[in-house]
């Protein structure tokens, strides 16, 4: 139990997926203009990464390893994730329209979010079992959600600031990200 807690906190805060591993930079910069959309994206990512890390752990353990084709992991994982995202989208559309309306637009964007593939590959690299893999997935995606929501909150305030001409747009967002990254370094002594 203690180990699982360490994995969760480690992946959510200490090794934050965006601010220290640089995965999922695209949505982090692209969809962080408003807190509302950012939390929608965060929710969708938590949802998809949790399912994806469960499914990929299962496939790795029960299909790839017994058949000794674990070197095909990259190819298999990316196809599984792409198919999974679309399946989730179709399922939500039919079964839970309200959730689909909240998350729908963000789902297709997630396929190429490298955080999803990153989590699947980290699980394999670190020899996590299925439960530890899912916990790592939840931790990582919650870390992403935290980062993107904080970023959106700051960006809403930046709107009113007097930013130098050249730094308007992406540069000031990147500087904010750098400062957030420094702040998250403070957690590095936590575990």
């Amino acid at each position: 139990m203690k180990e699982l807690l360490i994995i969760a906190i480690g992946s959510a805060i200490v090794n934050n997926v965006v601010l220290s591993q640089f995965l999922g930079i695209c949505p982090f910069l692209g969809v962080s203009k408003k807190v509302e959309t950012a939390s929608g994206m965060g929710g969708a990512v938590v949802f998809v990464i949790t399912i994806a890390s469960f499914i990929t752990s299962l496939i790795y353990k029960f299909i790839l390893v017994p058949l000794k084709i674990d070197y095909l992991q990259t190819i298999v994982f990316i196809l599984v994730i792409a198919a999974l995202v679309q399946f989730v989208e179709m399922f939500l559309k039919k079964a839970m329209p309200s959730l689909y309306n909240a998350l729908g637009v963000y789902l297709p964007l997630i396929t190429t979010n490298c955080a999803v593939l990153g989590v699947a590959l980290t699980n394999v690299q670190k020899d996590y079992g299925i439960l530890a893999g899912v916990i790592n997935g939840i931790g990582t995606s919650v870390g992403f959600a935290i980062a993107i929501v904080i970023m959106a909150g700051i960006r809403e305030k930046i709107e009113y600031n007097d930013v130098p001409e050249s730094f308007k747009g992406t540069p000031i967002v990147l500087i904010t990200a750098a400062l957030m990254s420094i702040a998250f370094f403070g957690f590095s002594g936590l575990i």
Binding site: F22, E165, F167, P171, I172, L174, A178, F185
Partner: peptide
Amino acid sequence: TIFILAPGAFLVLAGLTALQNKVKN
């Protein structure tokens, strides 16, 4: 040292995009 840690990456890229904006403007 911060430039070879994570925040340095964001800072360098921020400078780079600002430069690009300047050229564009």
